[in-house]
Amino acid sequence: MAAIEIYDTTLRDGTQAEDIAFTLEDKIRIAHLLDEMEFHYIEGGYPGSNPKDALFFEEVRKKPLKFSKVASFGMTRRVGGQVESDPIINSLLSAETEVVTVVGKSWDLHVRDALRTDPEENLRAIFESLEYLKKRGRMVIYDAEHLFDGYRANPEYCLKTLKAAADAGADRIVLCDTNGGSLPSFVSTVVKIVKEAVDVPIGIHTHNDSELAVANTLAAVEVAAVHVQGTINGYGERCGNANLVSIIPDLVLKMGHEAIPRKHLKRLRELTRFVNELANMPDNKRQAFVGESAFAHKGGMHVSAVVRNPETYEHIDPELVGNHRRVLVSDLSGRSNILYKAQEFGIDIDSRDPLVMEIL
């Protein structure tokens, strides 16, 4: 199966979540752990928006990453302005990253109501911004903001924005479900259409406002996407971004793709907890794959079956993602729960021992 690029934006998009704030040292530590796990890209921040993000790029150069490529993030030039003198574009160059990610408008509603300009000026801003950065030796990733809403509203203009990015030399075109309202079937349909319209590798960037960010990401990969953006633990604005801690094992274990090396899947639980700790956020015990409850068994019938064959109630071996099986004891327990817990604590007890029935 095709190799899928993993692009982490925890340090930029993830910090837009309510209650999330990382210090500069936090961001450096997270970047180095992601590098150890061989994430392909790490978006370090938006150097044109605040001094801390600009400083991150200075600090990360002092101890270069071994595998991951650091990306700086910005937007297309200002409406009516000159790209050469645009402060955001120049902040991307000042960050001195090999990769730059530029977001631009795909939805004519945003062109009219947010940028307050005409459609042609938006196309010029996309083309000129990306071309300028390409000519200065950068790998350019174009994030097509509100792509799916834009296509729904005005498919012809939406595709024109992508063609402007492709003509300017974009290395990746990333389709963004910025409002998080699309369904997987629609995502699949649009990704197929875009794949036919532009000859550039396609990426996907989804938000979780409809609880579908992971599903929409996988739907895009199934049809054409080879580049996946998301955050650790799904941190992000409003309801969050696509959760890479779920997407990565889905890609590798369920879909057979290469993403991060399989050996690093065992560190996903560690990564989840490390980022939560730095963010001062509690661990989500019910988080898929890595949560404390992800492989917890309570009902007696379930435990009895899992003891005989774990596949009966576990979709993967928990150790593949650094997790472990847990058996709980409650009023729902059966004999197998008691025997399992006894063995766990090193207590030798026979299944026919009257004590087992007394406990039950």
Results as ranks from 00 to 15, higher is better:
V140Y: 05
K160M: 13
D171F: 08
A166T: 06
Y157S: 02
E121P: 00
F148A: 03
S129C: 11
F57D: 06
S85W: 10
T117L: 02
K69W: 04
R138L: 07
I126L: 02
S68R: 01
H40K: 12
D143M: 08
G45F: 11
I30S: 10
K105A: 14
M37Q: 07
G137A: 04
K163F: 10
V102R: 09
I88F: 11
F39V: 12
R77F: 11
I141W: 14
A71P: 00
T97S: 14
C158P: 00
Q82A: 09
D171T: 06
P51G: 00
V102L: 10
T161A: 08
V70Y: 09
K163M: 13
V140I: 05
R78Q: 07
L33F: 15
F73I: 06
R112N: 08
H40N: 15
P155W: 09
N90R: 13
L34Y: 13
E84F: 04
G80F: 08
L92Y: 13
V99G: 00
E98K: 13
T101W: 01
L92S: 05
D113L: 14
P87C: 09
S68Q: 03
P47F: 11
S106Q: 06
K52G: 05
K160W: 02
D53S: 01
V99Q: 01
A95F: 13
A170K: 03
N90P: 00
E84Y: 05
R138C: 07
I89F: 05
L92A: 10
A31D: 01
E36T: 13
T117P: 00
K105V: 07
